[in-house]
């Protein structure tokens, strides 16, 4: 069964001209690592938070967000708590902000299973020690306060907390952005390793294309609340079919091929107060034609590559266009 199955998911906030999420389709299979890539404001964090039913105030939703076959959007508060305790867990971007500084690490780790699953204090602590060891820490940190640990150690604690309920799905929302580079690499390696060991699906939200390529099986590229392109990580980064993906790749700094100035993408993503007709990327796209401003492209399979889908009227011309532009 598909662990996470998001279908035609739309989310609208009060006082906005267009939906923040305008028809997102996304799946994560058991034991699969999927990266969700996009700029700030593209809706990637909102998508991952929706999986746990963490919606902003006043949000109106359509479509479905199914975890292990059950639709999160129609769950009762009781069902949501069970989902969050035992089925899906989130790793936040900044562990220092996401862990209460006034409570001990032990309390942070065991809180959810003690309060919800009715696990006894001793059993919960044993489980916590086991999970701490799985992330390379020891039970000694249980008595510590968050302020006494380094950022990297805290992110490991956060990962251990996510594993406490033995979830089928882990949502990692930019889990390495707040860490320094060496710690980033450790955390990424740890996540890959744990996914193998515990057999969880992993939705990895990031703006870092290199990281997405390194860790994931499949990638979704998101732009202005829609999926622009999706496919296996390697194929997608080798031959991008959406001009936005191509532009993102061009604006990624590379060690092996220094190219002087970075190619920034001209313009900025559309704001939530602007109505959108046509392709949301049209205003910044080097390939845009009259059609792009009139009609939004559907997310369609790429001819000859059934695993890939792209939402672009000119996906056949993407390769040349963006490279000429760079």
């Amino acid at each position: 069964m598909t662990t996470l199955d998001i279908q035609a998911y739309r989310l609208r906030l009060p006082d906005t001209a267009r939906p923040v999420l305008a028809g997102v389709d996304l799946t994560v299979d058991a034991r699969e690592t999927v990266a969700l890539v996009g700029e700030s404001g593209s809706g990637k964090s909102l998508t991952s938070r929706s999986v746990l039913g963490l919606l902003p105030k006043g949000a109106a939703t359509e479509g479905s967000v199914r975890v292990n076959g059950e639709d999160v959007l129609t769950m009762t508060p009781e069902q949501l708590r069970r989902l969050r305790t035992n089925t899906a867990a989130m790793i936040f971007q900044d562990p220092r902000a996401a862990i209460n500084p006034l409570r001990r690490i032990g309390d942070f780790l065991t809180e959810s299973v003690r309060l919800n699953a009715g696990t006894g204090a001793q059993a919960a602590t044993d489980r916590a020690v086991e999970m701490l060891e799985a992330v390379g820490l020891t039970g000694a940190v249980l008595r510590r306060y968050p302020g006494q640990l380094s950022g990297g150690m805290l992110q490991r604690v956060m990962i251990a907390a996510a594993l406490m309920g033995d979830p089928a799905l882990i949502l990692a929302d930019e889990p390495t952005t707040a860490l320094d580079v060496t710690t980033q690499a450790e955390v990424v390696a740890l996540l890959s390793d744990l996914r193998e060991r515990f057999g969880t699906g992993l939705l990895f939200v990031t703006h870092d294309l290199g990281l997405a390529a390194a860790i994931s099986d499949r990638v979704y590229v998101m732009y202005a609340g829609r999926i622009a392109e999706t496919g296996p990580a390697e194929a997608l980064f080798d031959r991008p079919r959406h001009p936005y993906t191509a532009a993102l790749l061009n604006s990624t700094p590379r060690l092996e091929a220094p190219q002087g100035r970075l190619a920034a993408i001209e313009g900025r993503p559309p704001g939530l107060r602007e109505e959108l007709t046509g392709c949301p990327f049209a205003a910044r796209c080097p390939l845009a034609t009259y059609l792009c401003g009139q009609q939004a492209p559907a997310l369609l399979p790429v001819p000859g590559e059934p695993a890939r889908r792209v939402a672009c009227h000119h996906s056949d011309r993407t390769g040349e266009g963006s490279h000429a532009d760079a």
Binding site: R81, F92, A97, N100
Partner: peptide
């Protein structure tokens, strides 16, 4: 953020208020 994070771990609303919001 840690209040959202506590909710994301399935801690019930009244427990979040007592253990995290009021406590802090």
């Amino acid at each position: 953020e840690h209040v959202t994070a506590a909710r994301s771990r399935g801690v019930a609303p009244h427990q979040v208020i007592r253990r995290h919001v009021f406590r802090n």
